[in-house]
């Protein structure tokens, strides 16, 4: 039969020669191989202290963005929920009342915004669908937990810190988003 590729290796089923039946040369060469691995670079890292860099397109937990004045950007348009293939996002919208202009950027806002992290497949379609720059996927991943309920992330879990109250934490979160955007581009 003609071989399909030139990479075919014919299996050699001859009985072992005397040298092979001594086993010891093969064992010694194997032991040399393992010994040489003593001095090789370790493939693993000391995890909590050292971390591997994520790939540029890594998609982790979501955050809800604020603008510079600390107003929520989300208008509860529902595009993210529509685009979500796993149907992980639910939201309820509400109308902005008088006196809440400092809290919400537009007239409509999300009163409830929940992502079920157990359903989410971290595809990033919500991020692409969002017209208001309101949702981003970060480089953190969901920590382990005991109950299913705790994996439904509400607004308090998702919103980034308020720049008027915690400017440093906000800058950090914003910086992450900017870096993320640049990397994806």
């Amino acid at each position: 039969m003609q071989a399909l590729t030139n990479r075919v290796k014919v299996l050699d089923q001859k009985p072992l020669t005397f040298k092979e039946r001594l086993y010891l040369p093969a064992i010694f060469s194997g032991m040399l191989i393992t010994f040489s691995h003593l001095f090789k670079k370790k493939a693993t890292i000391n995890y909590p202290e050292q971390k591997r860099p994520f790939s540029p397109v890594f998609r982790g937990l979501h955050i809800l963005n604020r603008d510079e004045e600390g107003r929520e950007r989300c208008t509860a348009c529902g595009l993210c929920a529509v685009s979500c293939p796993a149907e992980a996002i639910t939201m309820e919208s509400a109308e902005r009342q008088k006196g809440e202009e400092g809290l919400y950027r537009e007239e409509k806002y999300a009163a409830k915004y929940e992502i079920n992290m157990l359903r989410c497949i971290f595809c990033g379609l919500c991020e692409e669908a969002c017209p208001k720059d309101a949702i981003y996927l970060t480089e953190t991943f969901a920590p382990a937990n005991y109950s299913r309920k705790s994996f439904i992330y509400g607004k308090p879990d998702l919103l980034i810190p308020d720049p008027t109250k915690e400017p440093e934490a906000f800058a950090k979160a914003q910086g992450g988003i900017k870096a993320h955007k640049e990397k994806v581009r």
Binding site: T34, F35, H37, L38, K40, K41, K42, A43, T44, N46
Partner: peptide, 13 residues
């Protein structure tokens, strides 16, 4: 520990 080293790991540290 040596098993770790021989397998390019770190072993218990």
């Amino acid at each position: 520990r040596i098993a770790g080293f021989l397998q390019d790991r770190r072993g218990p540290n």
